[in-house]
Design a protein around this nucleic acid. Sequence first.
DNA 1: TACCGTAGTGAAATCGATTACACGCCAGGT
DNA 2: ACCTGGCGTGTAATCGATTTCACTACGGTA
Lengths: 324, 324
Amino acid sequence: MPTIYEVAAAAGVSPATVSRVFNGANVSPEKAERVREAAKALSFTPSRTARTLRLQSSEVIALVIPDIENPFFTALARGVEDVARAAGYSVVLCNTDEDHEKELRYLDIALSATMAGVIIAAAGGNSDLSGLLARKCPVVAVDRSPHGVDVDAVIVDNRAGGRAATKALVEQGFQRIACITGPSDVETATQRAGGWRDAIAAGPGFDGHERYLRYANFRVDGGAKAMSELLAMSEPPDAVFVANNLMSVGALQVLSEQAKLPPDTGVAIFGDLPFLPLVPIPITVVHMPARHLGVTAAKLLLERINGDDQPARTIVLRNQVAAV
Amino acid sequence: MPTIYEVAAAAGVSPATVSRVFNGANVSPEKAERVREAAKALSFTPSRTARTLRLQSSEVIALVIPDIENPFFTALARGVEDVARAAGYSVVLCNTDEDHEKELRYLDIALSATMAGVIIAAAGGNSDLSGLLARKCPVVAVDRSPHGVDVDAVIVDNRAGGRAATKALVEQGFQRIACITGPSDVETATQRAGGWRDAIAAGPGFDGHERYLRYANFRVDGGAKAMSELLAMSEPPDAVFVANNLMSVGALQVLSEQAKLPPDTGVAIFGDLPFLPLVPIPITVVHMPARHLGVTAAKLLLERINGDDQPARTIVLRNQVAAV
DNA sequence: TACCGTAGTGAAATCGATTACACGCCAGGT
DNA sequence: ACCTGGCGTGTAATCGATTTCACTACGGTA
């Protein structure tokens, strides 16, 4: 790795001048040319590490997500990346696997590597953002707004979405509408279940629906397991609202095995299934603006990075409900 | 951000001693305790940037992939992550979008941030790894082995896989077997098509099958477009081998729309569809050991990072062929 | 002529952690 | 009593880029 000093020596100038050439400061054309030639000859690349140390900031932003195998988060990541890249930033993805320890470690790295900012879809429960905030590292929460800390957030109206999805099932005349939601310490999970409760209370109503509520793990196996349990009940539900995309894959698999696919069973799901809509099954889908969440979060973060210090904002995006 | 100097001052020792405490060198128990207390009180985190600059190496490895929205690559990423994390390394994901410029930029970052190593599934064509290699940065290629450079690689036998998939179709009695493969500058794409060619030549044989070959973009829309074209031919194929997972989603969608799903049309695909196997469709699948590719690549990389400098190796994993 | 401003340049300090080197001290051997 | 060896510790150099400050040279103005 050649350094700026070697380039300077080769070009017969001082290191300061080399630095100035690479940062667009005033340098005589003739010397600038000599420097560029020397740099090319040595195939010199300025050390980001040294630069970051000196400037106390880098052009990298961390995107921390709980499940890289969930297409929702990868679509979100694309949104973040597109905006960030256009503004000259690079994005590194950190997969926490819904695990607090991993999350903490990545946040620690973001901090000690003086990254420009962090976009985080927090792992369940209350994430510890205090370290970042204390150091004034710009943070934007996305999809899930962390407990107790006051940061910019970009979310969807989970409760309204859950309500709309369930309402659609009510209107289709289903009587025993179950709900499969995510971990009880994940905000989006409880809110979507809350929407389900709202819709049932507002509908013709029936008692004892709480026994049709299941908390699962937001993944395919969780959805399958919960659906199996529900179908094994003495009075099984005739419809189900599944609160995320992956779990609905599991639920549909189980329904398929037991020959109870829609329209026999009413199904409404929260989130999109990019690879599913192959065989049209009549289900109600609450679409998630995944990419848009990412785009918006990235824009907010860039504003913060550029010094905007107004009080924290929360942006709530709409999700569209559609029958498929 | 408190520094090691402030901690030293607070604990009444020298910065060197603080450093030694954090790196497990010989320090008297009493001073070590004082340092730890001071560090905690100031909530001190050592600067990775400074450490990296001084040591000329970090504990971060870069994983460069062409499409983060492809479940194959995310599964691979999980494999890499699990192994790396167990060895104390962190993984940052870089999505190149099959774009050389983005790829180059990420490789540049990996280099100038003195990352511990790079695992790369190269974007189409010949990636420029010369910079990394010249600086002796450990590199392992995965899924695709880059043209012309001699690095460790972990791949599958694409040709054999394509052959097996197509052979299955031949044995099922199909006569006009098409092939939808990826970009012609991506090695895996041409090799899988090569396997298709092999199997047809070895079978009962029919002429003019080259007109049933389509190069697409390895994504859903590409598969759909190619399938539409094939079905619009005056003598359309009666079976198709689709050379990656996402394209097969597109192809199946088109077949579904035109009511030509299997068993009417023979379908064999290369790669897994984690979210598809809902409605059982009789297709032949060449399973990809995605996670295993990642695991193996990470292990090789760790060996290189630890100083192993034997000549480059290529590891070829098997894929299992199964009817669904 | 004297003075001022500006553009171009280099020397040196700086960012924060690591570590080679030197020093002081004490135990153990002769 | 003297030397040897090792442990604990601090001083200072180091990694590579950025930037302040000081200085020079030159053109323009009074």
